[in-house]
Design a protein around this nucleic acid. Structure first.
Lengths: 223, 223
DNA sequence: GCAAATATAATAGTATTACTATCATATATG
DNA sequence: CATATATGATAGTAATACTATTATATTTGC
């Protein structure tokens, strides 16, 4: 994938003003990715971001209500981008099993090289997704945010892959449970592999995570 | 399980003073469970807890450094209790497959009735685990806390069940990855089922989550 | 039963966070 | 060129996340 100038569709309910539309907006996105990665989400503040980009804090608030909605925006961007990659990886592939396998690869392989779509560093964004994305929906107002459509890109992506599962086996009962288990599980295992190795069997270097989840999907679907 | 007066071993690195040892300590634990459930972890503060228990904020700080370590303490308690339940459920069971199945049940079934071990409401604590426990280790200082032993009870529990997997199939390659996928996945799916149903196939009422993860484990291990 | 140690209460204080508000200035658009 | 819109500069506020100090209970050891 080269520098394609595609636009990742994220949803207008996630920001007050589209960051894509201005230089400041893009600076907010690209630098927030760097800063969240550097400090962790809890220590990240709009104040610190404002110092990094040399713009007043109040200007950032014109784009995002608060740092939580910014995180939701970033995760939504990531899932939208992931779905795009799945589409690219599976078009023109006729055999359903092969198609599903390609999708699982996109979902479980680590992102090692920045594919530089516009101003987003996908390698670092992926690190944030692994470390922080669960915080986007583990809040007291999930239901409210869900109603507003904050998690649509995630749902679309999961449902697209779940549909591939049904293509392989139309009788399989739990396609979405299977895929969301894989998506979240793969991130979780990457996190464990780096920080809590006693909870996994994945060693750095080799890619047992993709192998494990590929086995898992086909053991379940081709039963 | 009746009111057994067992003690759940949690680890001294998790608190400044053992809350088990005093009335105030126990009040802190039991009321923090209620308040975190009520407000969500982000809105929960020691100030609010101090008002609820009618003790000054500074007294709470004598037990826990901050609300994060309190959450780590609660999750550690939960895993220790879970392991205890697994031990109870599997003693005197000879057949390895049956043993593993019982353990998976303990890990995936919802906790519906308060088993009232001491001052901890396990039903509400389980709700907290489902909603908030990922925040216990998704922080910038996981590594440091891990070194201190903050996640030992979780590791012990996972490794105990992983050992049961190996009992069923000594050649299985990824026992810990499998079990941590199940544990985290089961909680995740309960959360999705309630808040983001588009990401799961589990409907309220029936227990497809336990069924799904039991299938999953045996499809992987008995391959 | 009393002294000493320990735990808790009462109160105050501080830096940082998470915003909101106002007004001036720059830039784009029609 | 007028108007709208975006950004900058600056200020302010309530709440958060602590720390510190002193007084008062309560427990424990002799």
């Amino acid at each position: 994938m080269q520098n394609l100038s595609i636009k990742i569709n994220v949803g207008s309910e996630l920001c007050l003003k589209n960051p894509d539309s201005s230089e400041l907006g893009q600076k907010i996105i690209s630098n927030s990715i760097l800063l969240i990665d550097e400090l962790g989400f809890e220590s990240f503040t709009f104040k610190k971001l404002s110092l990094k980009i040399n713009s007043p804090e109040s200007s950032i608030y014109r784009y995002f209500e608060n740092k939580h909605t910014l995180l939701v925006y970033l995760t939504s961007w990531f899932w939208s981008w992931t779905e795009y990659k799945i589409v690219i990886a599976t078009t023109n592939i006729e055999v359903s099993i092969e198609k599903l396998e390609k999708a699982i690869h996109v979902l479980t392989k680590p992102i090692l090289v920045d594919q530089s779509i516009s101003y987003v560093n996908e390698v670092i964004l992926n690190k944030i997704i692994i470390a922080e994305s669960v915080k986007a929906f583990h809040t007291k107002d999930v239901d409210e945010e869900n109603k507003k459509g904050c998690f649509e890109t995630y749902k679309y992506m999961v449902n697209r892959v779940a549909a591939m599962v049904l293509e392989v086996n139309p009788l399989y009962e739990y396609p979405r449970m299977l895929i969301s288990t894989v998506v979240e599980g793969a991130h979780q295992q990457r996190f464990f592999s780096e920080h809590l190795p006693a909870l996994t069997d994945s060693k750095k270097g080799e890619d047992s995570i993709t192998e494990f989840y590929t086995q898992l999907v086909f053991n379940m679907v081709l039963k």
